[in-house]
Amino acid sequence: MGAWATYRLRLERKRRLWRAFRRRRELKPVADRSKKIRRNDILLFATQRNERLRLPYFLRYYRDLGVNHFFFVDNGSDDGSREYLAEQKDCSVWTTTASYKRSRFGVDWLNWLQMRHGHGHWTLVVDPDEFFVYPFCDTRPLSALTDWLDTMSIRSFPAMLLDMYPKGPLDAQPYREGQNPMEIACWFDSGNYMISRNPTYGNLWIQGGPRARTMFAGDALHAPTLNKIPLVKWHRSYCYVSSTHNLLPRGLNLTYDEWGGEKASGCLLHAKFLSTLPAKVEEELERGEHYAGSREYRAYADGLKESPDLWCKWSEKYINWRQLEILGLMSKGNWA
């Protein structure tokens, strides 16, 4: 990478930070408890809209992992989720009715909150339907991982999005509040992921899984991106570029080994395909606030009409992280 390209990326990063800074005005504080944060706390950042049903389990899951404080940007919810979050002692909530799309799908908002509150902390950026799984997560808290990353001088930790789905039609098992979504959506695709390298940002570009298999088989180029880097030891000069798929400076994206070895990595269990999806798809299509003209949501709408069953006979049933490790979807690296 030449000096000129490096310089251009630096400019791009400054521009994005500036953009996030300007968009801070769109966020109105509902409950700001950021004063309660202590020095080595692990922080979680998320945007959400009308996720009242999912939030209780989401919060419980990440509290159990050892997240100390939650930052939410609420994008115009009207189902009481904002009020619910504002009541939680470990949540800070901002709200906005501004366009999700124009904030580049929430990235600007979260970049700002991270710049403001995340500096020097390990920060986890996830959606309310994403559940972080890392090596030894059943026996070691998240701080064990972050402490280890600190000793190894690693600044960012990758976790591929793993789409989870139920067997049978989505609406066969309705999701109840507080329920572990993986009780319903416990199946996943184990070995149909396609990887290439993004030459500009240096990150890997991973596609595949059930969505590519069923909804994007004819249009693989536009199949959803699955690579994510959700856990970063934040510095105020960092920024996410597109969702949590990649960051700047680009060194943070080099979370994979190029010489044959494996670096430690995790997975984000993506419990999108629940009984709540059809209503969500309808609503989101109407709003048209999603990526690439909501292409993904249009594909869902079509897909949901035709064959609502993502399950196939080679689907794998989720057991634990060790299973994902053996299947080669994540790795312990040299953490033992």
Binding site: Y256, E258, W259, M330, S331
Partner: peptide, 21 residues
Amino acid sequence: KAVERRTRGRAGLYMQARFPR
């Protein structure tokens, strides 16, 4: 074993943390 996993990895595996040149 952990060190070997980190330095040599699993042969023939291409994944998010192992994408050899």
